[in-house]
Design a protein around this nucleic acid. Sequence first.
DNA 1: CAGGATTCGTGGGTATCGCCAACGAACGGG
DNA 2: CCCGTTCGTTGGCGATACCCACGAATCCTG
Lengths: 146, 146
Amino acid sequence: MDNPPARLRGKPSWLISQASAYGHRLVTEALATENARRYHYSILAALDEFGPASQATLGRRCGIDRSDVVAMVNELAAQGHLDRTPDDADRRRNVITLTATGRQQLTRLEALVTSAQHTLLDPLSADERRQLTGLLSRVVEHHGLP
Amino acid sequence: MDNPPARLRGKPSWLISQASAYGHRLVTEALATENARRYHYSILAALDEFGPASQATLGRRCGIDRSDVVAMVNELAAQGHLDRTPDDADRRRNVITLTATGRQQLTRLEALVTSAQHTLLDPLSADERRQLTGLLSRVVEHHGLP
DNA sequence: CAGGATTCGTGGGTATCGCCAACGAACGGG
DNA sequence: CCCGTTCGTTGGCGATACCCACGAATCCTG
């Protein structure tokens, strides 16, 4: 890009949008190494932290639409990273369970994503990275509650 | 959203992505009030700050693809916010010029976008907003050069 | 305990975004 | 004068993030 207008350069939403685009690109490219996508990482992380869950719960936790969860679970199941089994206690639901290979995959993706963070925040010191993370967390939490 | 995994909550790229989604939504909704879209604001801002320019130049300045600039200029021209005239000095080019009504439109959009910034950064103090803007500017500038 | 509201998985659709390929017209440098 | 490059334009691709509708199942409440 070539000398963006000051009106844009001064708008937090524009800066965030630009930074998001870079981060998006970095993470997507890194994950492509393992034939994974961003949503895959999110879902695997949620399963690892909270244990087996229904697709709707996964969607709510990761901020992914139910319809999109279906596609992600399809792909991850096809790769053997998770199991999808009907819930006996509530037959509307599927119980999604992380497999052993899924856990290994998460470990690989975690390394890739973490390294992308370093690339993204390259110009910032460790202190500044913490500042940025803290400020953004406040913003995100604030808009997550309603 | 409902208790996102710690692995996500700690990743700057995820936080930025979430914040970007909120900002995107806020700005888009605000601009819809005037039947405008985000790219419209960018292009009007570039024209206001740097004066008349070719479509390719506008695209480079705002980080918009040439093909997408065509559509935006079509829409803005249809609304009378800018003029598209062939460049006599270089007949490959169109010279895009902001009209009086375009300048008024930019003023309206500016107010809408600015107000959306306040909503987005609601939980932060004025100092913290400046911090955030500064940190993000460093990140964006760093990745803009190569 | 019956019936209406709600939830779940799934399929389908929509709009935007960022990008890339190709084209003819026009310009510029060697 | 020719070759490479730029410009506007068209068309298309893939990912993202939505939204709606449906049938099955569950729940809540009177």
